[in-house]
Every structure is written in C-alpha cells, then in structure tokens.
Design a binder for these strands. Structure first.
Lengths: 292, 292
DNA sequence: TGTACAACATCGAATAATTCGATGATTTAG
DNA sequence: CTAAATCATCGAATTATTCGATGTTGTACA
C-alpha cells in the first residue's frame, strides 16, 4: 500500500528523460521494466500518474504533485544515506556535553555557534549543571565531554586545563566599603552581597560561596549583577574580564578584604579515555580551547 | 544502494516492539524475515544498526539517528499517500487563479487566507494582471478561475457577477477644486491627478483612465493615495468603501465634475464550462463571493 | 545448576516480485 | 508510405523475500 522509493525514482527518471525508453536506458533497465514500475506505482496509489491517451505519456495534474512530493522523498532518503556516510567518516552521531553554569556562557556559545555553522551531522546536546553536579551528570548520562571548574581525578579520564578564569571582589566607588582598608568578614556582613541566582545553582552550592551576611541579593545573570554593582547596591565577585575596564576607569573598586579579594579558577575540559572523541568532539574541544 | 521504506518500517517496528520476534508478529511476518530486513538495511547503509553483542539487540548510536531520520521518511511517504487520497476525494491538485489588480486586494487576500487555514491539499497559484491582460492570461495559462472587471463573452465560460464596486472622484475639502461647481475637463487638467501606479498596470491601461492633465502623481497603492488626497495634494478616483466615512465627515469632497464623478464596476468570477471546478475551486469561489 | 524460555542467526525450500526479451498496436516525422 | 519512436503486454528467467525449521547463546527461575 505505501509507495516505494524505487517507483518514485523511476517516475523521476521518466519525467526528466522524456520517455519510458530513455529513462530505461539511463537506469540500465529495459523499457518494459520501467513500464512495470510506473504501473505498480499507479496501482499502489490508486490513481493515474501518466495520461497515455496521446502519443507520449504526459504527467497528469495529480502526477505532477506526486512527482514533486516524491522528489522531496528521494532527497530525504539520499540525505539519510549521506548522514551514514559521514558517520563512517568519523563524525559521531551524537555528542553530549555537560558544562558548569558558573562558567561564562558567551565563549561556549560562540564555540557552539561556530560548530552549528559548519553543518556537521552530529547532534550536539548541551546540559548545564553546577559544581559537583557537573561530574555527576557526566557519569550518569555517560556524556562525552565535560567542561567543569572542579572534578574528581580518575585515571580513566583525559583532562585538559583551559585558560584561568580570574574573579575579583568589587564594589562601586561610591559604596562605603570602597574607602575601607583591611576589611574583615564581620564588616562585609553588614552590607548587601550580590550574587548570581540559579535554581540548580543554589542546591549544588549549598550557600558555600556566600559570605553569610544578613542580606543577599540574587540576580539572574552577571550582566544584571554588574548593573546592580554599578548602582552601588552592594558588593560581590565578578569575572575579571567583565570588570577590568571599570576598575581601570575607577567606577568600580577592588575590596581590600583580608580574606582575599581575588580568586582564580582553572576550567578543565574532560573526556573519557576509553571512549575517544569523534571528529565533532575534537573540533568542539579545539574551539572551546580557542574561545576561552 | 538507497534505503527502502520497507526496511525502515521494519526497523521502526522492532524498536517499538522491543524485539525482532514481537515486531514480526505485529507485522504479520516471521522472525527470520525481520532479521533478513534488518540485515539488508545494514548492508545497504554499510553500517551496523543494532548492537547484537548483548542478549537483546540494541540500537547503536548511528542506528538511533537512522531511526529518527527514517521516521521522518515514513511520515513523508504517508503524507504522499494521503495527498493522493484527498485528490481522489475531489480536491484538485492545483488551482490557478488570475485576478485583475484593479480590484481591491484585501477581500481577495482574506478569502485566500481562509483557504490556507483549512489545510487544503490544493496548490493555489495566483496571478495578477490588468484589464484585458486578465483574460488573455486566463486563456494562455489555461487557468481555472478568473476574477476580472471586464471580459469577452464566450459560451464556453461560466460567468458570475459579484457585488458592484463603486468609485468616486474626490479631493480634500481644503483643495481649490472642492469649492468649484460644474467642473470641466480643462479645469481638472490644471491640477495634480493622483493615481495608483503599477508597472503592468500602465502598459495595459495605456493612459486611458487618466484625465491627461499636466501632472500625474503615481502612488504605490490606495492607502498611499488616500494619504496624498487627505493632504490636499491632488484629486483622484477612490473606491467608495475606502472614502465613505471621510465624505460623511467632510474631510473629503466629491468633485462636481461634468464628466461624472461616480463610476461603477461589476467584478465577475469566471470559470470554464468544459473544466468544472474541483472542491477547492468551488470553495474559493464561495469565499470570494462572500468577501466581496 | 539445571531447565525452560526468549533472544537472534542461519539455512534451504517455497513464494513473490522484478526484470528481460520479444512482440504488437499506435503515432510521428520525413 | 516507410522508418522510427511511442508504450503495453506476455511468458520465461532471474532476484528478492518469506517461510519453517534448526542452531546458538544468554536469562530467569526454581
């Protein structure tokens, strides 16, 4: 009852060649075979595809639509085959990536966009977790790549360090804390702390990274946090790259906190030794290394 | 070398049933037949679809992608069949419509949109011509329907009159012509005439419809023309329905032109008697009748 | 640890689908 | 009017697919 691709291919050949016999030659078949395939197609669809009343068979209006739809069908089938070819050329069918949401998202998105633009057959799946959750998810989902801030060493993992990520504790120059020297924790706790909020984030974090002050404001992302900082609403950690120019211009000031006002993370790119990355994985690793 | 739909169907059945044997039962085949189809598919694609190392065959990653693409292929094939079914239920595969661009386009577009929303299998093709060109195109293209302002009678055509289309010659109340009475052609020719411009339009028209004044401004559509009229830029013909409320409110004034300040067109809907309309054609005719 | 069962592969025979090669009826081109 | 081109049709040959039976391996359960 359903159509079959062979008939459609013959139909397309007939139309493009102009006659059953010429199509037969192009397909390395006999004319009677072509005739048979067309009749089979008509029988399966229950409708006439060619009008044979004239000397040369001509497409019926319905036939034209069948041809058009059929061409799409053939293209799609060809696409399937070419996909498989690409898989055998080293492109993996899917690549699962787990990243830490703490990391700045722009460089990663830039790398992913570059990949998407290359028209790669690999389906890339991205998953965002936080801190310990990253590796947990990596194990659980049997993901291919992990972009994390911390990880549990394991001799079955291949680990590659990326460029350091520096953070600095800042406030607006207009904020009272800006003038203070040798600030102690207790002093910090009298002011509003600004931090980036995320549902998953909080669970994984367990409040470990806040200073435990009376009031903590949760912002949706670092851009919002930066605006709040600029307004003098409170103090908080920021990626150095985002605030360097503001420190230079004096709009923001680095806190003279005794517990240290700088922090340095080293993001790592991890994959399994027992499951080597495919071409897409290697390419993405390379791009991530460049973008960070 | 290409895939065939039967193998894909079997693949889908195996995955949804969970095993070769259960799939065989669902498909009314034997288990060995299912095994054969899967092997054939793997051979054609040149890759393993199932991993048989375990007790139950499991899809390989490549297999998963093949399944996903294959499902789309099957859906498309099913769509083709259902299209043909709809054609045999009276929906014509294509409907060619030629309309006169002089007619207001909104009611026609409304009718066409209603058709599109109904998810009709018919491909509707619209062609815009002007005056005599409409019928010429209708004959030449062997179109199905014609929506025209004038036509050459022919006993092989079925003609149906639509609601009259009234036009009126207007200017802004602030325009010098607004105060004049018993205006003659020579007087009109001293003022700027506003008219709707179209590349095809001018050719077909041959200037027949302008008053032959010194200055004629060509606007892109009736909305632009209405704005120009409101500004008092000049005078011109407008569809009554578009200016009725402005005449009532006194913002525009009907010219007291001796050659007549009103005109009435009767749009007709024409189709061939020897080629009856299909369901889509009848439906569209009905909607056009309602919308005009 | 057997034992029964369920998984899938494989094999040869049976059946079905497709192709071939030849022929026929029409139509076109010159 | 003839040669060539159109497509249909037919029986035989060839391929493709299915069937039914059997083999091998892993699972579940007592």
């Amino acid at each position: 009852m359903p159509v079959d691709l062979e008939s459609i291919k013959v139909l397309a050949a007939v139309v493009s060649a102009g006659s059953f016999a010429k199509a037969a030659e192009k397909l390395n078949k006999t004319q009677s075979s072509v005739s048979y395939q067309i009749q089979k197609l008509e029988q399966r669809l229950g409708t006439e595809v060619f009008d044979r009343s004239a000397y040369r068979a001509e497409l019926t209006p319905v036939g034209e639509r069948i041809l058009a739809e059929g061409q799409r069908l053939l293209n799609q089938a060809k696409h399937l085959s070419s996909l498989v070819d690409q898989f055998s050329e080293g492109w993996e069918p899917r690549l699962e990536l787990v990243v830490d949401g703490m990391l700045p998202s722009l460089p990663l998105l830039a790398a992913l966009k570059e990949m998407a633009d290359l028209n790669i057959p690999t389906h890339i799946q991205l998953r965002v977790e936080y801190l310990g959750g990253v590796q947990q998810r990596f194990e659980q989902d049997n993901a291919d790549l992990m972009l994390a801030l911390e990880y549990q060493a394991d001799n079955r993992l291949s680990v590659q360090a990326l460029a350091d990520l520096k953070t600095v504790l800042v406030v607006a120059a207009t904020h009272p804390l800006a003038q203070m020297r040798a600030i102690e924790l207790a002093q910090l706790q009298h002011h509003i702390e600004l931090t980036v909020h995320d549902s998953s984030y909080n669970k994984a974090y367990g409040g470990r990274q806040t200073f435990g002050g009376e009031r903590v404001f949760y912002l949706s992302d670092f851009r919002a946090k930066l605006e709040a900082l600029n307004l003098g609403l409170g103090f908080g950690w920021m990626p150095m790259v985002m605030v360097q120019h503001l420190l230079d211009s004096g709009e923001l000031v680095e806190l003279d906190y005794l517990g240290g006002s700088r922090h340095r993370y080293t993001p790592v790119l991890v994959n399994r030794l027992d499951r080597p990355l495919g071409r897409a994985g290697l390419l993405l690793s390379e791009k991530i290394r460049q973008c960070f």
